[in-house]
Write a protein that binds this DNA or RNA. Structure first.
Length: 360
DNA sequence: TAGGCCATCTGGTCCT
DNA sequence: AGGACCAGATGGCCTA
């Protein structure tokens, strides 16, 4: 366990970020030297501050000017400060009592050393962010919408991953074949329209089937994705069902209109996956492996490599039948539950044989 | 050109 | 003291 991940929440006075604190002038008095920072002083719209705060700031700056121990001083700042010191010398005797002994001015060695430390810190920060991005990239590959050419943004990747985890855990919790419509709608909950379209393309669905309305609700109109999925012959995986290759069911309902929330609640019997929901509290971690339910292939699977860069396969849970032989949602021959799963008082028995392992 | 996304720099804070 | 983490600022790139 990385201790840094479980830090005790910072003290209340530290919750507001540094820059925000500067802007709000809520600095603790012992940190008033920051008011002399060039980034603060040059362009800050002081006239926008309340008069009382402007007075407070002026007072603090007067006090802070006497503190020469500022690591990030530039040479210009140093000369400016020397001028200030000459002025300050006039009443130095009086202020000396309050200030105490002057601190030693940082020498060139100290400045060079500080610059070097800053460069090293920058390099570490770059490396850290690269690691974070690498982790995010690996996350992109396991959410049900991976494209090398059209990458999900960071925020959309996280949102989709959250939705995916939620939908999968609820699927396991229900212990039955998922309602595909609800599943897809859950995936798209809160996603932007481009990402919704991307997921639609990924799932080989017509994006119009689950457009997001202006309220952020995922709406459904037209042919049910479920129907489309289950009746789709799939001779041309590049085309959404009903456009080419797929057989448009002549008996399909002409128009159906679901609101996302009702469809979601009907199936999941739970409120929205938003973490703000009471049910979701404390259940942020997926209590499952998705083995046996969904098998994601993103390394150019032979079945789907021709269809572009997306790869999603629906696999049957143990004892369940294939959805459709030609559907992109199909039972993976190696689909197994390699583990005992204990999901919210539910347990799935381990399959006896494991023909192959996938998804580390 | 505005807005979104991203990488990078930077300083503050916490921890070891 | 120094590293990790965090968040704000900034500028570049891309797209509608």
């Amino acid at each position: 366990m990385n201790g840094a991940e479980w830090r005790v929440p910072r003290d209340a006075k530290h919750v507001v970020s540094a820059a925000t604190r500067r802007d709000m002038l809520t600095l603790p008095f012992e940190e008033t030297h920051m008011m002399c920072e060039p980034r603060f002083g040059a362009n800050y719209p002081r006239e926008s501050l309340p008069e009382s705060l402007q007075q407070q700031e002026r007072q603090q700056r007067t006090t802070a000017r006497s503190d020469p121990d500022m690591m990030r001083e530039t040479e210009d700042d140093l000369s400016d400060r020397e001028e200030d010191e000459r002025e300050d010398d006039q009443d130095e005797n009086e202020l000396q009592k309050k200030r105490g002994p002057r601190k030693k001015r940082p020498g060139k060695e100290h400045v060079d050393r500080a610059k070097l430390r800053r460069q090293e810190a920058n390099a570490r920060e770059r490396s850290r962010m690269h690691g974070l991005n690498a982790a995010l990239e690996s996350l992109r590959k396991v959410v049900p919408c991976y494209s090398k050419t059209q990458k999900l943004s960071k925020i959309e990747t996280l949102r989709l991953a959250k939705n995916y985890i939620w939908a999968l855990s609820e699927t396991l919790n229900a212990g039955k074949r998922p309602d595909l419509l609800a599943f897809v709608q859950t995936l798209c909950k809160g996603l932007s329209q481009p990402t919704t379209n991307l997921v639609a393309g990924c799932l080989q669905l017509n994006a119009r089937n689950f457009l997001t309305d202006h309220n952020g609700e995922v709406m459904f109109s037209g042919r049910s994705p479920y129907e489309a999925m289950y009746s789709y012959t799939g001779s041309d995986m590049n085309s959404p069902p009903g456009h080419s290759g797929g057989v448009m069911d002549a008996n399909s309902k002409p128009f159906r209109h679901y609101s996302y929330s009702s469809a979601y609640e009907t199936y999941f019997e739970n409120p929205s996956p938003d973490s703000s929901s009471p049910h979701f509290d404390g259940q942020l971690s997926p209590p499952m492996s998705f083995n046996g339910i969904f098998s994601l292939k993103h390394d150019d699977p032979p079945d789907y490599g021709k269809s572009g860069h997306y790869g999603v396969r629906y696999c049957g849970a143990p004892g369940r039948t294939a959805l459709a032989p030609t559907s992109m949602y199909r039972v993976s021959p190696e689909a197994r539950f390699p583990y005992d799963l204990h999901v919210r008082s539910q347990s799935f028995q381990t399959q006896g044989e494991v023909n192959g392992s996938y998804h580390n």
